[in-house]
């Protein structure tokens, strides 16, 4: 881990603490933006009209999978540590990644659709891949509970109330496979959480994350362009306003 990561970051901590309210809808996209205090990723509001389904106040910002607000807050806080808000632009929460994950857990992703789920089950070697009978949504629920347990045991308080670096320590423990979970390794849970977070940050906004395509803007990825045949040979880097799939419909 870098030194930077260990530096206390009060503004972010405040941000993450407040993030809990996102679930309750108390913080709209605009407020989040001013809270973070930078408008880098917000430069092109024109492309995100009021009615867009990707605004933080849009109707799909409700929970399909998680039943308890607290679980969603823990998930949100963890995603924000994986992909934090910084000088490049918004973090996982502002981009809507936690909603993306919630919605995905309610569907085929959470239910291991198109995956082999028959028994018998045995642990296998390090090279044989995922072998648990648990469904992905069960792993996320169990992982979130385990994060909270770690937090209570080590710091006597909830994961959502920890300092960012304390949250990082717990997440690192998961990644290093040092947390006991039933029927699944904590490293597997962490890996799934990480991939899901990045998917929520960078998938087409149609899935509910990557709000305003700001994930793409940070990476200077133009999204779904129809053709680059006119630009492919260019010596210069070309700035292209990103285009979402809904423009193809």
């Amino acid at each position: 881990m870098s030194d930077e990561k260990k530096a206390p970051d009060l503004s972010r901590r405040k941000f993450i603490k407040n993030s809990g309210y996102v679930a309750g809808g108390a913080i709209g996209g605009g407020i989040l933006t001013s809270l973070i205090g930078t408008s880098v990723w917000n430069g092109d509001q024109k492309t995100a009209p009021e009615t867009t389904t990707n605004n933080a106040d849009s109707y799909n910002r409700a929970l399909m999978y998680f039943r308890r607000r607290k679980d969603f807050e823990i998930l949100s806080a963890a995603t924000e540590r994986i992909f934090p808000e910084d000088e490049n632009g918004p973090g996982a929460i502002a981009l809507g990644a936690p909603y993306f994950i919630d919605h995905q857990l309610a569907g085929g992703f959470g239910n291991n659709e198109k995956e082999y789920t028959r028994g018998p089950f045995s642990e296998g070697t390090d090279y044989q891949g995922y072998q648990s009978p648990l469904k992905r949504h069960e792993i996320f629920s169990a992982g979130i509970q385990a994060m909270e347990r770690e937090s209570q045991e080590n710091y006597g308080t909830s994961f959502v109330d920890l300092e960012g670096e304390q949250q990082d320590k717990i997440l690192q423990k998961f990644q290093d496979n040092k947390v006991k979970m039933k029927h699944v390794s904590s490293a597997y849970f962490f890996d799934q959480l990480r991939t899901a977070t990045l998917s929520g940050v960078y998938a087409d906004p149609l899935y509910g994350g990557n709000a305003n395509m700001d994930g793409w803007r940070m990476k200077e990825f133009p999204g779904s362009q129809m053709s680059y045949i006119q630009q492919i040979e260019s010596e210069e880097f070309i700035d292209i306003e990103p285009s979402p799939l809904k423009d193809h419909l």
Partner: peptide, 8 residues
């Protein structure tokens, strides 16, 4: 690292 501030 493959997550966190520096990763981003």
């Amino acid at each position: 690292p493959n997550w966190g501030k520096e990763f981003k």
